[in-house]
């Protein structure tokens, strides 16, 4: 299990390849990556603020829970903070299990919890101003299925 909270960009392909090496007993790897989306067409940057210390603890707790709830061989979470440009990679998760069901479910669980339980806040900087991204009720509701 590895958790990284960093400002630096990362190479999704290289991380996925490194994760896939040395996974005894694994027959399935699921990866997800999140990108900075420019919905309005005038996004200059996405600023991601976080709570140093709590962020790492919260993600480690979420990843640890995923490891115990599903039969995972390993899991990986990388999440960036700081100023990101449209199209940049914000974060990724990877999960490995013997069969695909556990890896898929654990990856969805990780994403649902990272959305609303890891202390990150997004602010969109556009040509017309800056606005904090509001949490969606749907994100909170998504936790109920777990």
């Amino acid at each position: 299990m590895r958790v990284a909270v960093q400002a630096e960009p990362f190479d999704f392909g290289a991380e996925a390849a490194a994760f896939t090496r040395d996974l005894p007993g694994a027959g399935a790897v699921v990866t997800f990556t999140g990108l900075v989306r420019d919905l309005s067409g005038d996004l200059a940057a996405m600023q991601i603020e976080h709570y140093p210390g709590m962020t790492e603890r919260a993600i480690a707790a979420i990843a640890g829970e995923a490891m115990t709830r599903w039969s995972l061989v390993d899991c990986l979470v990388i999440h960036r903070h700081g100023d990101l440009a449209p199209g940049e990679t914000i974060m990724m998760v990877a999960t490995a299990s013997a069969h695909r069901g556990d890896a898929f479910a654990a990856a969805e669980f990780l994403m649902d919890y990272l959305k609303s339980r890891a202390p990150f806040w997004k602010k969109e900087i556009t040509t017309s101003g800056a606005e904090w991204v509001a949490a969606k009720d749907a994100d909170e509701d998504a936790l109920k299925r777990w």
Binding site: G34, M54, K115, W132, A135
Partner: peptide
């Protein structure tokens, strides 16, 4: 102390309190 809590939680022994809006990670 870096764990989510409720607003009626006691502060005895707590060293760090943080206030923030609902989180928007992922």
């Amino acid at each position: 102390d870096q764990e989510l809590a409720e607003f009626d939680a006691p502060l005895a022994g707590v060293r760090e309190v943080a206030f923030f809006p609902p989180m928007t990670g992922g």
